[in-house]
Simulated scan of single mutants.
Amino acid sequence: MKDSARGLLLVTSGILVLSFDGLLVRLAQTDGWSIVFWRGLLMFLALGVFSLSAKSRASVRAHPLLSASSALLLALISIFFVLAIIHTQVANVVIILCTAPLFAALFTRFFLGEHVALHTWLAIGVAALGIMVVFAGAFSASDLTGNGYALLSSAAVGANLTLLRRHPDLQRMPLIALGGLMAALIAWPNAQPFGLGSSSYWVLALMGLIQMPLATLLINNATRYLPSAEVALFYLLESVLGTLWVWYFLEETPTHAALYGGALVIATLVAHAGLTLRLRPAVPA
């Protein structure tokens, strides 16, 4: 399989798994800090054992500052996203997260000096237009705190994808495990982890042991094969899918604008993926 195709498969699969995140945060039915604590700790437990391999330990020892930076960015992504969902509507959060490709493209261009293809810029613009159409009929004044958290989460996504793109030799699994531990430690003073209902623990277990580790691992590994701006572009797809899951499971009916805008986003991503496969030559193994 060509590198571009492998990267597209990884990021598409990862975003599909990640798209349930907003729904699961809502279903947990508890405060944001407790959610951050448990899902971070469970991610650490789920991946920590695999991170004890000699290769993983060597990677962290060889790049301690880079490893700590990526882990901290992953922790901040989780914290800001959960707090954003708690403070404002899911629709507000996912539309703001659409700025992740812009952050990634800017970081890639100005910090790495890596060329960002014209068709990627065009895809970002068209897909962003689709997102505006999605929420045209429902996007209203939202809480400034929640919007601020969502913007910070988006910036952290772009920064982490760019860092991983610059250093493809970094082992992803220990970074995700350390990021989960950092998030749990940061959240601990404000969390109430042992006062939740049984249903909350089931949702948090699903989120922390399966959904978030799997999604993060897939997306972070995609940066080995694709530029960070292209990986971040797929967060636009998450905004559509995340809205659809909330509609289906929580009966928040999307507007016609959401359906039309979602179709535009998906069509844009398909066209961009096709151009990527055609224009980028395979990198020899």
Rank of each mutant, 00 (worst) to 15 (best):
G158A: 02
R172F: 12
H167C: 02
P174D: 03
R172G: 03
S153V: 06
G148L: 09
L151R: 13
L152G: 06
A136P: 11
A155F: 07
N147F: 09
L151V: 04
S153H: 06
R165G: 14
Y149Q: 13
L164D: 09
L170E: 05
A156L: 07
S154Q: 00
L161A: 06
M173F: 09
A141R: 14
N147W: 07
A150I: 11
A156C: 08
P168R: 01
L144H: 07
L144A: 11
L164A: 03
A159Y: 15
L164R: 05
H167F: 01
L161D: 09
R165L: 06
P174Y: 03
L170I: 04
A159L: 14
P174I: 03
G146C: 14
M173C: 01
A150C: 06
A155M: 10
V157R: 00
L163D: 13
A141G: 10
M173L: 10
S140W: 15
A141W: 15
S154I: 02
A150W: 10
L161Q: 12
G148T: 08
A138F: 15
A150T: 15
V157D: 01
L170C: 02
N147Q: 10
T145Q: 11
N147C: 08
F139D: 13
S153Y: 06
D169W: 04
L170M: 03
S154G: 02
P174R: 02
A156R: 06
A156G: 04
A156H: 12
Y149P: 10
S140T: 15
A141F: 14
S154P: 01
T145H: 14
L144I: 13
R172K: 09
L161C: 05
M173Q: 03
